[in-house]
Structure formats: structure tokens, C-alpha cells
Design a binder for these strands. Structure first.
Length: 867
RNA sequence: GCGGGCGUGGCGGAACUGGUAGACGCAACGGACUUAAAAUCCGUUGGGCGAAAGCCCGUGGGGGUUCAAGUCCCUCCGCCCGCACCA
């Protein structure tokens, strides 16, 4: 048995695909299109195993759909702006642009070695002015359409990366990149009005039926819609209030607007609470030093503190009271409370301790009345009391005047109507989703095309001056944004009045670039972001593939961006990604030496089933398999694997062991197994080919039984593999291919009919592995005497007549337990099957002397004799 | 706390709408080839009892529906993920 020369074969295959332009995509209205896209990478310099899995899955789909006759668009590009390049600049004194393009070059080489069927002529890099100039134009359009605005607000500040972060980029109170606890700062920032689309973004999730439920749910929760009532409370100073407080209240002027989803509990209201950042708190704080100090305390804690969880519910009595809207004389103390968020609802609530756990805790702390107003249906209302737990279920209204006896839903409705009629309330829907803050205080990003003029204010850069390009001559010797301290770039005359003005030195969040790149791929060199014709033809992306980590971030931003682009006339659709596959992570065991330091997989070896250090043989502790990460050193360099085993081996391994959406355990044995299979296949074809009839040779004689049986196996495999690929069950497809290989390996050279059937089987095998192991497929195809390419060959079609067996195996059960099987002709009638079953010795032995109650017969499947 | 997912041999995983549990692979063991090893090829491999035919048990635990449950329902346990003072 000889060894397969993957190096030669893979280089040859890649060269010929490129030479013949196999993967070039062109609009062709006469053909059905299929756009498959993998999340484009950040050019870090080296591909990692996660990339390999992602692109292998994408290529599988692309090649399969191409073979099925679709006009496939499968592009690749670079999400090239971002902080790592800037951090590298600080550390190694290399310009971010230079390192980025170097990285792109080396990663391109690695990707090309994988044999991925990309249309490389469409490659884009988002850091190129040819890309971001259109982003700047879009921003100006968004501005004109009211979709972008600037405001001063409290923002999440990452003290390590020296920049602002969007809410989506704060994970557990820490920066998503740096991991540093996020601080609160008040800054003037650019925002995109994603909240304008909150309702549509949530509603349209229903239409994304080829997205995982999990992702849809995560987006739904993130957008966080709740329906309720905004209601006004009239305010007055309490008897205890100071004169200053009373005066401050006058300056606030107006009722207190609260938001509630439980207006039905209004008769149980015991207090109102406002956010420390509420304008009323501001006003009152000016008149009360104690309150001012409390507010400062709250802000220091911010949302950054992980201590939120344990933080006590604290409030400060402002000395103001709110009048109950329906009970004259009932006064609710107004607190400033640390748990009320200015960003949600109206930044103010009324508290009903009996029916909200948080309000209950607050009430217990400040000794406020706990008045139940909803009782479980069927309980004695007068005896219903609240102890430790608030009652939040449905029930019947009590102690609530005109609401008494109603169900919660009805009571909500009645209160809402009353408040609306009185002009004191309004039914509203509020969202958790905040507008997307896109300003970043960093250099390596797309400049925001705005000029700040001392006399004209904010002025947009005229379109004729676009793109605003980044200056090359920057230094990173100090922390912070080098654009902000640049000697010349920053200073420009105002485009309107000509006086000295300053450029906006913030750049866009890099998620802005990735929010529209899929559209740019449809017309990558157009003199516009893309053309309407190309976008209309190719979009939406039919199948998008990437990691679950973007479930909210990138995928939500892109959905918003598509809507915003539509509003500005660029596009005619709302949803960019019709199908989404979220791949699982690649995991690996972890290793630690005696001192507890992490070891690379290369630094350990196995001796007699024990894992030891590769040098001195000292014992190594093996940890559970977890996501590959540099910090735990459980990483494998795919480039080294490709070098040692070839691209097809790593591709096959990526597909075979786990379904795509599940985590995949990397094992050396798995790689070895894939490599072994490739060699086996190659040897089988190489050895068989000389004895086979020539390609396209008609069948001379009738097929014998054995040859017929082989054909049946071949055609059943075609059906099974096609179905598996349609449903992305790639691991099963691989298993089917292996089965067919085993089947073919069992057949020997035979008569003409057998060799004819073997040719069909081997050719089918070559075509079926085309999407998985494209290089080997070409090699086999050629060995079988074909001139053309598998990459250009149509997907095999199964002969339906061959996929249905004439005979079936039917399970025979007695009382539901398997007692034997019967080999019978397909679609045999009930009576014949029953007779055959009862005649089985094992069945006869059990039924002897007993009455058969009934016999269940499922055609072609099962016969169950019930005694 | 809320929401979601998962739990099948030594391991990764199969099992379409309830109908022969463990496909395919990995690992292990036995054998062939070899002076020997590697590679390769052939075979065995869920557990228990048995000389064998065969029988019993078995999809996290318990209960239920059904002729029949890995699959449906209830309940408990464990693990993973997302959100989290959301009014």
C-alpha cells in the first residue's frame, strides 16, 4: 500500500481551480443564486482552528450548492480595523496599517492552502479607504435621515483600551476585549438610532425561520420589549421638606412620569423611586447636601461594579411626596434609589411591595406599607398577607376600590383607560435596547467625517472631500488616541465658513464595518458601497456561518444596518441573513505540570496510557476539554497540521466527529483517523482504476445480483448524503461516505457488470467527497480517467428505483419486546406478515397455550403480538 | 432570580414524524504479514449469566401515557449557555 502524496495533489488542485476560475461568481439572472458567507476574520496573522472549522463548513456548503447547479457567491475578506493592530503598534513600534497588511498576506496564504472555493477577486479589507469611504458616506446619509445623532451621555469607558464601549460590548461589567472593569463617564458621543427599529427587529425575528432559536431568543431578550403604562404623579413637598427642597421642586416643574407594567397594582403603591440620574434628582440634589452625596455614591458604583448583585437596595427620601391618582390624601414618599436605571422606561417607578420582590425588600428596609391588592383566585381575600415573598402571579384584585374582583389583565386595562382619559397616562412599549454608541477614541478605525467649527458648530465633511483618510504619520508613544494629538491632521478650515476648525478625532466602532461588508461583496469594486442590481441579485445571504459569540453584537447590528440602508434607499430588504448556522467551539484537553503551569499539547506525550512531560517524563495533570485559548495553552496550530497531513485531512476531521453546531473535541487520534481514511480511499481507487471499463462506457450485459446490490448501495448513499448535506448533518454525511467506501472495498474485480458497477461506485464516491475533501476528489476523478474537474461536475443523482429495497427486515415483538426479525418482501400484507411472525419458533414458544389479544402491524417495520 | 439547551458504550457521536438502541469513527483486545517494530489487512468489542442455543438488564434518577418510549408528559438530579436591580 502506498502513501498518498497530498502535497503535490493539493498544490495541483488549487492551481487548476484558480487557472480555470472555477469559483468566480457573476450575476446571472437566469440562474438561481446562492450566497454563502462565513464571518470574515480579523487579520491576526495566523489562522486558528476555529477559523478552519468555520471555513470548512462554509466551503462544504458552497461546493455542494455549486454542484447542485446554483450560481454560488462565496467571498472572503478582512475585518481589518481594530485594537490589536494598535496595541501591536504600541508594543512593537510598527504602523497598524503595515502590520495589518502583512497579516492579511500571511493569512491569505494559509487560507489558500486549505483549498477553499472563494472568489478571491472579491476580496476586501475594511481598512482600505476604498472600503471605508462609503461607510463615511452612509454615515452622512444616516445623519440626514435622522438615524445618527450626537449626544452627551453616560458611557461605558474601558480604562485599559482607553475607549468607549457599546452596551453590547460590556460582558459582566467588563470590556469585551480587555476584560477590564468598565467605568462610567459622561462624554459626547455619536449614536445610531437602532432603537427606532426595536419593534421591527424583534417582530421580524419570527420570519428568520432558518436561524437557531437560541440566537433569536437572545436577540429578543436583548431588545427586551415590555408593554405597560406611563403615568403621571403630581408632586408636592412633604411637611418635613425644607424650604430649599420645595424651591428645587418648583424648578423641576411638572409631574413625575413613571413607567409600570403592573398598573393594576396601583392601589398597593407605597412609594415612588427615581434614578440618581433623573432630572428631578439633579434638581433636588442641588438643595440637599445629603442627597447630593447619595447620588454621587450611586454613580461611583455605577453598573461597572460586579457588586451590583450584592448591593443593598438603598434609597434616599427626598422629602417630596407623590399624590396617589385614585386615593385622595394618600401620599407616596419619593425616593432616589440606587436600583432605578435612568436608561430604562422613564427613570422612575412606583413601588408596590406586595407584588414585586424588589419593591418588597425596599419596603422592609424603609418600613413602608405592604398592602396586598391581588390575591390568588379562590383564597379568602381578607386573610391574604405577604410575608417574605411578593405575590407576582395572576389573581383577583382586592383592596382596590373599583378594580375589586377583576383579573389582573382586566384591571390593567381599566386603569390604563382611566389614566388615558384623565390625560395622566399613556400606554407605551419600552425597550431595553439602547441606541448604538459608535464613537471610539482610537486611531485604527474609520474616521468620522465631521468637523467641529467654533462658529458653525458641527459641520459634515462635504462629499467631495471624502474619504477622510487616516494620517500615516502617527506615533503611539503615549496612551490615548494619536489622532487627538496629531500636529496637522486634526486642524482644518471649516467647510462652511473657512475659520479654523477641528476634525472629529473619534473613529467608528469596528462593528460598523462588519455591519455591511456582506453587501460590499456583491460589488466589491463598485464606485459606490455596492450597486443596487448586484445587491438585489445576491442578497440576502442564503447561508451565514459563524460563532455564537456574535449572537447579539454583530448579528443585531447588521440587521439594523440593513434596515437603515433601506431607509436611505441603498437596499430593498430588511434581513441580511436568511439562514444562520452557529458553529460550536473547538475544544482540547488542558495540561498542567507539577508546578501548575499550563503546557502546550506539543509539550506532553503519552507513555503507557499516562500523560507525561515530553522532556523529562514528569507527570502531567490532564484537565477537561475546553475551548482552545492561548491562556490555557490548549491550542493546536492548524498550519502545522496542514503541513503534516494536508488540507483534506483537517477538513475531514472538522466535519466528521461532531455536528457543526456542537463543540468539537480536537484529538490527534481524530486527525490520524482522517488521514488513514484518505489514504485508504486513494489506494482503493488507484488499485481499482486500471481494471475498470473506461469512463462513460455503456453497460454491456445485464447486471448480476452482486453488481445490482452494489448499485443499490451506491444510489442509497447518494440519497442519504444529499439529504444530510441539505440539513447540515455533515458528520452523518461523512459516515455515509465511509460506509460506501467499506462497501466498495468488499467488492472484488468481477465480470464486466461488476466492474461497471464498481466504476459507478468509485465515481460517485469521488463526487460525494468533492465538498469535503476537494483535492482528493480531483485526484480520484483523474485516476478514474476523467479530464474535467469535480469542482465543475454536477452532483450525482440517485436512481429512485435503486434506493428502494424489494425486501425489508421487519422486527417481530411479543408484548413489545423484540423476539426476532423477518426478512420479507416489501409492502407485504398484514395477513402474510402476521402468519410469518406467528410461525417464528421464538414467537410460537411464547404464544403457546395463550390467547393472542391482538397483533399490531406497522407495514415494513414491526409486528407486535400482544398476549 | 429569569430564559434556553443538554444528559445514549471506555470516548466523539447515530437513531427521519414513537416502531430492531449504539450507524460511522476513535480507543482497546485478538489474529495475519514481518527477524522485529511501524504501517497495513482481518476479526472481536454496552453490561450480566451461560459450554452453547439463548435469557436478563440497559439511553442521568423516579413515575406516567402507549401494543411499543432514547424519542411524548410529570417530577427530581447534574452540566452548559444567555440575560440579569428591566419597573
Amino acid at each position: 500500500m502506498s502513501r498518498y502524496n497530498f502535497k503535490e495533489t493539493e498544490a495541483k488542485g488549487q492551481a487548476i481551480w484558480e487557472e480555470r476560475g472555477c469559483f468566480r461568481a457573476n450575476e446571472d439572472p437566469g440562474r438561481k443564486k446562492y450566497y454563502v458567507l462565513e464571518m470574515f476574520p480579523y487579520p491576526s496573522g495566523r489562522i486558528h482552528v476555529g477559523h478552519v472549522r468555520n471555513y470548512t463548513l462554509g466551503d462544504m456548503v458552497a461546493r455542494y450548492k455549486r454542484a447542485c447547479g446554483y450560481n454560488v457567491l462565496h467571498p472572503m475578506g478582512w475585518d481589518a480595523f481594530g485594537m490589536p493592530a494598535e496595541n501591536a503598534a504600541i508594543e512593537n513600534n510598527i504602523h497598524p496599517g503595515k502590520s495589518t497588511y502583512q497579516n492579511i498576506e500571511s493569512m491569505t496564504r494559509q487560507l489558500k492552502a486549505m483549498g477553499l472555493s472563494y472568489d478571491w477577486s472579491r476580496e476586501i479589507a475594511t481598512c482600505s479607504p476604498d472600503y471605508y469611504r462609503y461607510e463615511q458616506k452612509m454615515f452622512l446619509d444616516f445623519l440626514a435621515a435622522g438615524l445618527a445623532y450626537r449626544k452627551e451621555s453616560w458611557v461605558n469607558w474601558d480604562p485599559v483600551d482607553h475607549t468607549v464601549l457599546a452596551n453590547e460590548q460590556v460582558i459582566d461589567g467588563r470590556g469585551w476585549r480587555s476584560g477590564a472593569p468598565v467605568e462610567k463617564r459622561k462624554l459626547s458621543q455619536w449614536f445610531l438610532r437602532i432603537s427606532d427599529f426595536a419593534d421591527d427587529l424583534i417582530e421580524s425575528l419570527k420570519s428568520l425561520d432558518r436561524w437557531p432559536d437560541r440566537v433569536r431568543l437572545m436577540q429578543e431578550n436583548w431588545i427586551g420589549r415590555s408593554e405597560g403604562l406611563r403615568m403621571s404623579f403630581r408632586l408636592a413637598p412633604s411637611r418635613a421638606a425644607s424650604a430649599e427642597t420645595a424651591k428645587a421642586l418648583d424648578s423641576f416643574d411638572g409631574p413625575l412620569e413613571v413607567f409600570t407594567t403592573r398598573p393594576d397594582t396601583i392601589f398597593g403603591a407605597a412609594f415612588c423611586a427615581i434614578s440618581p440620574n433623573h432630572p428631578l434628582a439633579d434638581a433636588l440634589g442641588g438643595a440637599d447636601d445629603g442627597l447630593a452625596a447619595f447620588i454621587q455614591d450611586c454613580n461611583r458604583l455605577g453598573t461597572a461594579e460586579a457588586a451590583i448583585e450584592t448591593a443593598e437596595k438603598e434609597g434616599f427620601d427626598t422629602g417630596i411626596i407623590a399624590r396617589h391618582p385614585f386615593v385622595s390624601g394618600r401620599e407616596l414618599p419619593v425616593y432616589v434609589a440606587n436600583f432605578v436605571l435612568m436608561e430604562y422606561g422613564s427613570g422612575a417607578i412606583f413601588g408596590c411591595p406586595a407584588h414585586d420582590q424588589r419593591d418588597l425588600e425596599f419596603a422592609r428596609t424603609y418600613d413602608l406599607a405592604v398592602r396586598p391588592v391581588v390575591a390568588p383566585k379562590g383564597t379568602d381575600a381578607s386573610g391574604f398577607t405577604i410575608n417574605e415573598d411578593a405575590y407576582t402571579e395572576d389573581g383577583v384584585l382586592i383592596n382596590s376600590d373599583f378594580l375589586d374582583g377583576m383579573a389582573v389583565a382586566q384591571a390593567k386595562d381599566v386603569i390604563a383607560r382611566r389614566m388615558e382619559e384623565a390625560g395622566d397616562g399613556e400606554r407605551v412599549t419600552v425597550y431595553r435596547l439602547r441606541d448604538w454608541g459608535i464613537s471610539r477614541q482610537r486611531y485604527w478605525g474609520c474616521p468620522i467625517p465631521i468637523i467641529h467649527c467654533p462658529s458653525c458648530g458641527m459641520v459634515t465633511v462635504p462629499e467631495s472631500d471624502l474619504p477622510v483618510t487616516l494620517p500615516e504619520d502617527v506615533n503611539f508613544d503615549k496612551p490615548g488616541n494619536p489622532l487627538d494629538r496629531h500636529a496637522s491632521w486634526k486642524y482644518v478650515p471649516c467647510p462652511q465658513c473657512g475659520t479654523d476648525a477641528e476634525r472629529e478625532t473619534d473613529t467608528f466602532d469596528t462593528f460598523v464595518e462588519s455591519s455591511w461588508y456582506f453587501a460590499r461583496f456583491t460589488a466589491p469594486v463598485a464606485d459606490a458601497p455596492f450597486t443596487r442590481e448586484a445587491a438585489d441579485y445576491w442578497l440576502p445571504v442564503d447561508q451565514y456561518i459563524g460563532g455564537i459569540e456574535h449572537a447579539v453584537l454583530h448579528l443585531l447590528y447588521s440587521r439594523f444596518f440593513t434596515r437603515a440602508l433601506r431607509k436611505c434607499g441603498y437596499l430593498g430588504l430588511d434581513e441580511p441573513f436568511a439562514g444562520l448556522l452557529t458553529q460550536g467551539m473547538v475544544c482540547h484537553e488542558t495540561y498542567r505540570d507539577a508546578a501548575g503551569s499550563w503546557l502546550l499539547p506539543d509539550q506532553v506525550r503519552r507513555v503507557d496510557g499516562k500523560v507525561v512531560h515530553f522532556e523529562d517524563g514528569s507527570p502531567v495533570t490532564v484537565g477537561r476539554s475546553e475551548k482552545m485559548s492561548k491562556s490555557r495553552k490548549n491550542v493546536v496550530d492548524p498550519a502545522a497540521i496542514i503541513e503534516a497531513y494536508g488540507a483534506d485531512t483537517i477538513r475531514l476531521f472538522m466535519l466528521s466527529d461532531s455536528p457543526p453546531e456542537r463543540d468539537l473535541d480536537w484529538t490527534d487520534a481524530g486527525i490520524e483517523g482522517a488521514w488513514r481514511f484518505i489514504n485508504r480511499l486513494w489506494n482503493m481507487v488507484e488499485n481499482a482504476a486500471p481494471n475498470l471499463p473506461p469512463p462513460g462506457c455503456p453497460l454491456a450485459n445485464d447486471l448480476g445480483e452482486a453488481a445490482h446490490e452494489l448499485r443499490r448501495g451506491v444510489h442509497k448513499t447518494i440519497t442519504a448524503v444529499s439529504g444530510d448535506l441539505d440539513r447540515f448533518h455533515f458528520n452523518r454525511a461523512v459516515a455515509r461516505v465511509r460506509e460506501l467506501t467499506n462497501l466498495l472495498a468488499e467488492t472484488a474485480d468481477g465480470g464486466d457488470d461488476m466492474n461497471w458497477a464498481r466504476r459507478e461506485g468509485l465515481e460517485t464516491l469521488a463526487l460525494l467527497i468533492g465538498p469535503m475533501m476537494p483535492h482528493l476528489a480531483e485526484q480520484l476523478w483523474q485516476a478514474l480517467g476523467h479530464d474535467g474537474l469535480v469542482a465543475a461536475a454536477p452532483w450525482p443523482v440517485a436512481d429512485a428505483a435503486l434506493t428502494i429495497d424489494d425486501r425489508v427486515t421487519i422486527a417481530v415483538q411479543v408484548n413489545g419486546k423484540l423476539r426476532g426479525t423477518l426478512d420479507l418482501v416489501r409492502d407485504i400484507g398484514r395477513d402474510d406478515a402476521e402468519a410469518a411472525a406467528l410461525a417464528l419458533p421464538a414467537v410460537a414458544a411464547m404464544t403457546e397455550g395463550k390467547a393472542v389479544q391482538k397483533v399490531i402491524f406497522v407495514p415494513n417495520r414491526v409486528i407486535n403480538v400482544v398476549l
